[in-house]
Design a protein around this nucleic acid. Structure first.
Lengths: 152, 152
DNA sequence: TACGGATCATTGAAAAAGTCAACGATTGTT
DNA sequence: AACAATCGTTGACTTTTTCAATGATCCGTA
């Protein structure tokens, strides 16, 4: 197993000044979250990233691979293999870009949307667990702050 | 580096439901933040992680490597090489655990504290940049929410 | 006290992820 | 028409992560 198990962790070190370092807080919450999310998504053959791609493919926004790379902070070549995988499993397909024939638009299949719905439900439970220490209002606040930090 | 440059990114896809997915928001903010942080720390021969280790070493808490691994969500073997590096450069040193002779306590050297002070100042500027879209109050709120989510 | 199981730091190997340059196809500009 | 730029793709390369094994040490129990 990796970094840390699911045991309760005594945060003796959290008292240090670094316990307020945004970079560290993000890294830590992201790490523990990924662990849980990937575990929850494993039942559907997905991981955090392939789930994200599938979600965007299901969104109706018809994203290009380049847009996926930018939005998900990935290298274009990483998007290639994520889409390859999802396409081989019949969950998404590549379509010709409409204004730009170099670009490829990623759209979901019916099966892709079916899997996505199930996976999304599992993830929601997962997020609730991860943010259990927060009230509903704080939960909303956190999302709002993260979004604002990212996109103003 | 890799993923995306420092250009402003048009978040056409942020409109999708996934734009509220906590996992993705954390991943994205963490990714862009790491990029900036590592760039800022490069002047001191540090990266996000070695900086974290150095910070804890400077904290006076006398952390063991195991505690560092738990707190930083790293595999123990990763802590070994981080400490190796810092120790070779004379910024920290390993000391015998006090109650437990298996454990090794990581403490900073004078030079380590000197570098750490400079690096910390650089990082603060960096974080301000990253969270420029937030007001001071929101900045504080965000830290508080992240800490609460992690440690209740 | 001595045994057995657990934990610590460390090593090294294997798997996964990230980085980067190059390519053909296509686009937009000059 | 020519040129540089962009898109997806490939392949090579580096870094990071993951994991099992090891010797030393600790702890509980017989």
């Amino acid at each position: 197993m990796g970094p840390q198990s699911t045991e309760v962790e005594t945060p003796r070190l959290a008292a240090a000044k670094i316990g307020s370092d945004v970079g560290l807080l993000l890294a830590k919450l992201h790490a523990t979250g990924s662990l849980l999310n990937n575990k929850a998504l494993a039942d559907y053959g997905l991981r955090e990233r392939s789930f994200s791609v599938l979600t965007l493919a299901c969104s109706g926004l018809e994203p290009t691979q380049r847009e996926l790379a930018d939005f998900l902070s990935l290298d274009p070549s990483q998007v290639v293999s994520l889409v390859d995988d999802l396409e081989h499993r019949g969950l998404v397909k590549r379509a010709q870009g409409k204004q730009d024939r170099r670009a490829k638009i990623i759209v979901s299949t019916a099966e892709g949307r079916r899997i996505h719905n199930k996976a999304r439900a599992a993830l929601e439970v997962c997020e609730e667990t991860q943010l259990a220490a927060l009230t509903d209002e704080e939960n909303v606040q956190l999302r709002a702050l993260l979004k604002k930090a990212l996109w103003g």
